[in-house]
Protein backbone atom coordinates (compact mmCIF):
# COMPACT_ATOMS: atom_id res chain seq x y z
CA UNK A 1 0.00 0.00 0.00
CA UNK A 2 2.89 2.29 0.84
CA UNK A 3 4.46 1.60 -2.55
CA UNK A 4 1.24 2.46 -4.34
CA UNK A 5 1.02 5.75 -2.46
CA UNK A 6 4.60 6.69 -3.27
CA UNK A 7 4.14 5.82 -6.93
CA UNK A 8 0.91 7.84 -7.26
CA UNK A 9 2.31 10.88 -5.45
CA UNK A 10 5.55 10.56 -7.37
CA UNK A 11 3.82 10.54 -10.76
CA UNK A 12 1.62 13.48 -9.79
CA UNK A 13 4.62 15.49 -8.57
CA UNK A 14 6.64 14.60 -11.67
CA UNK A 15 3.89 15.85 -13.93
CA UNK A 16 2.89 18.92 -11.92
CA UNK A 17 6.42 20.09 -11.12
CA UNK A 18 7.86 19.45 -14.59
CA UNK A 19 7.51 23.07 -15.90
CA UNK A 20 9.15 24.23 -12.68
CA UNK A 21 12.24 22.05 -13.24
CA UNK A 22 12.54 23.24 -16.84
CA UNK A 23 12.33 26.75 -15.40
CA UNK A 24 15.24 26.06 -13.03
CA UNK A 25 17.46 25.13 -15.98
CA UNK A 26 16.47 28.33 -17.80
CA UNK A 27 17.07 30.53 -14.73
CA UNK A 28 20.48 29.05 -13.99
CA UNK A 29 21.42 29.53 -17.62
CA UNK A 30 20.32 33.17 -17.47
CA UNK A 31 22.25 33.79 -14.25
CA UNK A 32 25.39 32.22 -15.76
CA UNK A 33 25.06 34.63 -18.65
CA UNK A 34 24.58 37.60 -16.35
CA UNK A 35 20.86 38.04 -16.96
CA UNK A 36 18.12 37.96 -14.35
CA UNK A 37 16.11 35.45 -16.31
CA UNK A 38 12.39 34.74 -16.26
CA UNK A 39 10.39 33.74 -13.25
CA UNK A 40 10.59 30.08 -12.21
CA UNK A 41 6.86 29.84 -12.78
CA UNK A 42 6.95 31.08 -16.38
CA UNK A 43 6.23 27.55 -17.69
CA UNK A 44 2.87 27.41 -15.89
CA UNK A 45 1.95 30.88 -17.09
CA UNK A 46 2.75 29.96 -20.72
CA UNK A 47 0.71 26.78 -20.49
CA UNK A 48 -2.26 28.67 -19.05
CA UNK A 49 -2.00 31.35 -21.70
CA UNK A 50 -1.78 28.84 -24.55
CA UNK A 51 -4.69 26.81 -23.20
CA UNK A 52 -6.93 29.84 -23.40
CA UNK A 53 -6.01 30.80 -26.96
CA UNK A 54 -7.74 29.89 -30.18
CA UNK A 55 -6.11 26.98 -32.02
CA UNK A 56 -5.21 27.14 -35.69
CA UNK A 57 -3.86 24.56 -38.10
CA UNK A 58 -2.23 24.84 -41.53
CA UNK A 59 -4.60 24.52 -44.47
CA UNK A 60 -3.34 21.18 -45.80
CA UNK A 61 -3.06 19.46 -42.44
CA UNK A 62 -5.37 16.64 -41.38
CA UNK A 63 -6.49 15.10 -38.11
CA UNK A 64 -3.01 13.62 -37.72
CA UNK A 65 -1.65 17.10 -37.03
CA UNK A 66 -4.36 17.71 -34.45
CA UNK A 67 -4.02 14.38 -32.66
CA UNK A 68 -0.22 14.17 -32.62
CA UNK A 69 0.36 16.38 -29.53
CA UNK A 70 -2.20 14.33 -27.61
CA UNK A 71 -0.44 11.10 -28.53
CA UNK A 72 2.96 12.53 -27.53
CA UNK A 73 1.64 13.78 -24.23
CA UNK A 74 -0.08 10.46 -23.51
CA UNK A 75 3.01 8.42 -24.41
CA UNK A 76 5.18 10.52 -22.11
CA UNK A 77 2.65 10.37 -19.30
CA UNK A 78 2.71 6.57 -19.57
CA UNK A 79 6.51 6.74 -19.31
CA UNK A 80 6.16 8.82 -16.17
CA UNK A 81 3.76 6.20 -14.80
CA UNK A 82 6.25 3.38 -15.47
CA UNK A 83 9.20 4.98 -13.69
CA UNK A 84 9.64 3.73 -10.12
CA UNK A 85 9.70 7.09 -8.39
CA UNK A 86 10.34 5.58 -4.99
CA UNK A 87 13.01 3.16 -6.23
CA UNK A 88 10.53 0.28 -6.08
CA UNK A 89 6.99 -0.23 -7.35
CA UNK A 90 4.22 -2.68 -6.46
CA UNK A 91 4.94 -6.09 -8.01
CA UNK A 92 2.07 -5.96 -10.48
CA UNK A 93 2.97 -2.51 -11.79
CA UNK A 94 4.96 -2.49 -15.06
CA UNK A 95 8.30 -0.70 -14.81
CA UNK A 96 10.08 -2.06 -17.80
CA UNK A 97 12.90 -0.13 -19.47
CA UNK A 98 12.29 -1.63 -22.92
CA UNK A 99 8.69 -0.43 -22.90
CA UNK A 100 9.92 3.05 -22.01
CA UNK A 101 12.17 3.07 -25.09
CA UNK A 102 9.36 1.89 -27.33
CA UNK A 103 7.11 4.63 -25.95
CA UNK A 104 9.80 7.20 -26.70
CA UNK A 105 9.85 5.84 -30.25
CA UNK A 106 6.07 6.23 -30.39
CA UNK A 107 6.38 9.89 -29.44
CA UNK A 108 9.09 10.44 -32.06
CA UNK A 109 6.96 8.75 -34.71
CA UNK A 110 3.99 11.04 -34.11
CA UNK A 111 6.07 14.19 -33.88
CA UNK A 112 7.55 13.25 -37.25
CA UNK A 113 4.15 12.55 -38.79
CA UNK A 114 2.81 15.89 -37.57
CA UNK A 115 5.82 17.65 -39.03
CA UNK A 116 5.17 16.18 -42.48
CA UNK A 117 1.42 16.75 -42.17
CA UNK A 118 1.87 20.50 -41.79
CA UNK A 119 2.96 20.53 -45.47
CA UNK A 120 5.63 23.17 -44.87
CA UNK A 121 9.40 23.05 -45.13
CA UNK A 122 10.14 23.36 -41.44
CA UNK A 123 8.01 20.43 -40.37
CA UNK A 124 9.69 18.08 -42.81
CA UNK A 125 13.10 19.36 -41.81
CA UNK A 126 12.45 18.83 -38.13
CA UNK A 127 10.89 15.42 -38.70
CA UNK A 128 13.84 14.27 -40.77
CA UNK A 129 16.38 15.48 -38.23
CA UNK A 130 14.53 14.07 -35.23
CA UNK A 131 14.15 10.69 -36.91
CA UNK A 132 17.83 10.57 -37.88
CA UNK A 133 18.89 11.57 -34.40
CA UNK A 134 16.48 9.00 -32.98
CA UNK A 135 18.09 6.20 -34.95
CA UNK A 136 21.30 7.05 -33.12
CA UNK A 137 19.72 7.65 -29.72
CA UNK A 138 17.91 4.33 -29.60
CA UNK A 139 20.96 2.03 -29.92
CA UNK A 140 22.92 4.35 -27.63
CA UNK A 141 20.17 4.06 -25.02
CA UNK A 142 20.26 0.26 -25.28
CA UNK A 143 24.05 0.25 -24.98
CA UNK A 144 24.05 2.45 -21.90
CA UNK A 145 21.43 0.26 -20.28
CA UNK A 146 23.65 -2.74 -21.09
CA UNK A 147 24.97 -2.72 -17.55
CA UNK A 148 21.43 -3.05 -16.21
CA UNK A 149 20.66 -5.96 -18.57
CA UNK A 150 23.89 -7.68 -17.69
CA UNK A 151 23.78 -7.25 -13.93
CA UNK A 152 20.09 -7.97 -13.31
CA UNK A 153 19.37 -10.40 -16.15
CA UNK A 154 16.08 -8.65 -16.80
CA UNK A 155 14.73 -5.48 -18.33
CA UNK A 156 13.09 -4.10 -15.22
CA UNK A 157 14.28 -0.71 -13.94
CA UNK A 158 16.08 -1.71 -10.74
CA UNK A 159 18.75 0.17 -8.78
CA UNK A 160 22.18 -1.38 -9.45
CA UNK A 161 24.03 0.71 -6.89
CA UNK A 162 24.09 -2.10 -4.25
CA UNK A 163 25.83 -4.40 -6.74
CA UNK A 164 28.42 -1.76 -7.34
CA UNK A 165 28.91 -1.43 -3.61
CA UNK A 166 29.54 -5.16 -3.29
CA UNK A 167 32.21 -5.17 -6.03
CA UNK A 168 34.45 -2.10 -5.87
CA UNK A 169 35.82 -3.14 -9.27
CA UNK A 170 32.48 -2.24 -10.78
CA UNK A 171 33.10 1.41 -10.05
CA UNK A 172 34.66 2.12 -13.43
CA UNK A 173 31.86 0.49 -15.47
CA UNK A 174 29.37 2.33 -13.31
CA UNK A 175 31.09 5.64 -14.01
CA UNK A 176 31.07 4.92 -17.74
CA UNK A 177 27.37 4.11 -17.62
CA UNK A 178 26.63 7.37 -15.77
CA UNK A 179 28.54 9.44 -18.33
CA UNK A 180 26.98 7.57 -21.23
CA UNK A 181 23.50 8.01 -19.83
CA UNK A 182 24.08 11.73 -19.32
CA UNK A 183 25.11 12.12 -22.97
CA UNK A 184 22.14 10.15 -24.31
CA UNK A 185 19.67 11.87 -22.00
CA UNK A 186 20.84 15.30 -23.16
CA UNK A 187 20.29 14.25 -26.78
CA UNK A 188 16.91 12.70 -26.02
CA UNK A 189 15.76 15.81 -24.15
CA UNK A 190 16.81 18.01 -27.05
CA UNK A 191 19.14 20.16 -24.95
CA UNK A 192 22.53 21.61 -25.86
CA UNK A 193 24.86 20.41 -27.39
CA UNK A 194 22.50 18.13 -29.34
CA UNK A 195 19.65 20.54 -29.99
CA UNK A 196 18.98 24.05 -28.80
CA UNK A 197 15.54 24.42 -27.19
CA UNK A 198 15.61 28.22 -27.48
CA UNK A 199 16.47 28.66 -31.13
CA UNK A 200 14.32 29.67 -34.05
CA UNK A 201 16.99 29.51 -36.72
CA UNK A 202 16.30 26.93 -39.39
CA UNK A 203 19.93 25.87 -39.56
CA UNK A 204 19.92 24.65 -36.00
CA UNK A 205 16.44 23.76 -34.89
CA UNK A 206 15.04 20.26 -34.59
CA UNK A 207 12.20 19.89 -32.13
CA UNK A 208 11.23 23.54 -32.56
CA UNK A 209 10.87 22.99 -36.31
CA UNK A 210 8.31 20.24 -35.90
CA UNK A 211 6.12 22.35 -33.59
CA UNK A 212 6.52 25.56 -35.57
CA UNK A 213 2.96 25.44 -36.93
CA UNK A 214 1.36 24.68 -33.56
CA UNK A 215 -0.37 27.10 -31.24
CA UNK A 216 -3.14 27.24 -28.69
CA UNK A 217 -4.11 24.06 -26.89
CA UNK A 218 -2.14 21.87 -29.27
CA UNK A 219 1.08 23.74 -28.53
CA UNK A 220 0.31 23.63 -24.82
CA UNK A 221 0.18 19.84 -25.04
CA UNK A 222 3.49 19.69 -26.89
CA UNK A 223 5.11 21.92 -24.26
CA UNK A 224 3.71 19.82 -21.44
CA UNK A 225 5.02 16.70 -23.17
CA UNK A 226 8.51 18.19 -23.40
CA UNK A 227 8.41 19.12 -19.71
CA UNK A 228 7.26 15.66 -18.61
CA UNK A 229 9.99 14.10 -20.73
CA UNK A 230 12.47 16.34 -18.93
CA UNK A 231 11.62 15.08 -15.46
CA UNK A 232 11.02 11.46 -16.51
CA UNK A 233 14.25 10.92 -18.42
CA UNK A 234 16.36 12.55 -15.71
CA UNK A 235 14.65 10.61 -12.94
CA UNK A 236 15.01 7.36 -14.93
CA UNK A 237 18.78 7.73 -14.83
CA UNK A 238 18.86 8.51 -11.12
CA UNK A 239 16.63 5.54 -10.26
CA UNK A 240 18.88 2.84 -11.68
CA UNK A 241 22.29 4.49 -11.42
CA UNK A 242 21.90 6.64 -8.31
CA UNK A 243 21.70 5.91 -4.61
CA UNK A 244 18.50 4.57 -3.12
CA UNK A 245 17.45 4.45 0.51
CA UNK A 246 15.36 1.89 2.33
CA UNK A 247 12.20 3.97 2.63
CA UNK A 248 10.37 4.72 -0.61
CA UNK A 249 9.14 8.07 0.76
CA UNK A 250 12.72 9.20 1.38
CA UNK A 251 13.60 7.97 -2.11
CA UNK A 252 10.90 10.17 -3.56
CA UNK A 253 12.28 13.15 -1.66
CA UNK A 254 15.73 12.23 -2.92
CA UNK A 255 14.39 12.19 -6.50
CA UNK A 256 13.09 15.74 -6.12
CA UNK A 257 16.45 16.95 -4.85
CA UNK A 258 18.26 15.09 -7.63
CA UNK A 259 15.96 16.62 -10.21
CA UNK A 260 16.76 20.11 -8.90
CA UNK A 261 20.49 19.42 -9.01
CA UNK A 262 20.28 17.95 -12.53
CA UNK A 263 18.31 20.91 -13.83
CA UNK A 264 20.90 23.31 -12.40
CA UNK A 265 23.66 21.19 -13.90
CA UNK A 266 21.98 21.28 -17.32
CA UNK A 267 21.72 25.07 -17.03
CA UNK A 268 25.45 25.30 -16.34
CA UNK A 269 26.34 22.92 -19.19
CA UNK A 270 24.18 24.90 -21.60
CA UNK A 271 26.10 28.08 -20.81
CA UNK A 272 29.45 26.38 -21.34
CA UNK A 273 29.05 24.40 -24.56
CA UNK A 274 27.92 25.35 -28.04
CA UNK A 275 25.60 23.36 -30.24
CA UNK A 276 27.34 20.62 -32.18
CA UNK A 277 27.11 20.56 -35.95
CA UNK A 278 24.24 18.31 -36.93
CA UNK A 279 26.50 15.81 -38.71
CA UNK A 280 28.81 15.64 -35.69
CA UNK A 281 25.97 14.24 -33.59
CA UNK A 282 26.62 10.73 -34.89
CA UNK A 283 30.06 10.91 -33.27
CA UNK A 284 28.55 12.29 -30.08
CA UNK A 285 26.06 9.43 -29.85
CA UNK A 286 28.76 6.97 -30.90
CA UNK A 287 30.80 8.02 -27.87
CA UNK A 288 27.81 7.42 -25.60
CA UNK A 289 27.25 4.03 -27.21
CA UNK A 290 30.91 3.14 -26.82
CA UNK A 291 30.84 4.03 -23.12
CA UNK A 292 27.83 1.81 -22.53
CA UNK A 293 29.37 -1.12 -24.37
CA UNK A 294 32.71 -0.69 -22.65
CA UNK A 295 30.99 -0.74 -19.28
CA UNK A 296 29.38 -4.09 -20.08
CA UNK A 297 32.59 -5.56 -21.49
CA UNK A 298 34.56 -4.58 -18.42
CA UNK A 299 32.09 -6.38 -16.17
CA UNK A 300 31.68 -9.33 -18.53
CA UNK A 301 35.40 -10.02 -18.83
CA UNK A 302 35.96 -9.59 -15.11
CA UNK A 303 33.42 -12.34 -14.72
CA UNK A 304 31.84 -10.62 -11.73
CA UNK A 305 28.12 -10.38 -11.25
Amino acid sequence: MELWGVQIIGVLLAILLSPFYVGIAQTVKARMQGRRGPSLWLGYYVLKKLWGKETTAPEYSSWIFQVAPTVSLSALTVIALFIPWGGRVPASWPHDALTVFFLLALERFWVGLAGLDAAGTFGGLGASRIATLGSGIEPAMFAVFGLLWYLTGGTVITPIMPQWWAHPLHMLPWGLAVLGYALVAIAELGRLPADNPDTHLELTMMHEATILEYNGRLLAQSQAAVAIKFTSIIALGWVWLGPNLASPWLNLLLRLIELTLSSMFLGVIESLVVKLRYFRLSTYLGIAMGMGMLAVYLVAFQGGK
Partner: peptide, 17 residues
Protein backbone atom coordinates in the same frame (compact mmCIF):
# COMPACT_ATOMS: atom_id res chain seq x y z
CA UNK B 1 -6.48 14.25 -23.04
CA UNK B 2 -7.91 14.50 -26.55
CA UNK B 3 -11.37 15.17 -25.20
CA UNK B 4 -10.06 17.77 -22.74
CA UNK B 5 -8.14 19.59 -25.44
CA UNK B 6 -11.01 19.63 -27.98
CA UNK B 7 -8.48 18.96 -30.72
CA UNK B 8 -11.13 19.04 -33.45
CA UNK B 9 -11.83 22.74 -32.88
CA UNK B 10 -9.25 24.39 -35.12
CA UNK B 11 -9.29 27.20 -37.65
CA UNK B 12 -7.44 26.51 -40.90
CA UNK B 13 -4.86 29.17 -41.81
CA UNK B 14 -2.13 29.34 -44.46
CA UNK B 15 1.12 27.64 -43.46
CA UNK B 16 4.28 29.55 -42.63
CA UNK B 17 6.51 29.95 -45.66
Amino acid sequence: VGWLSRFWKVRKVPRWS
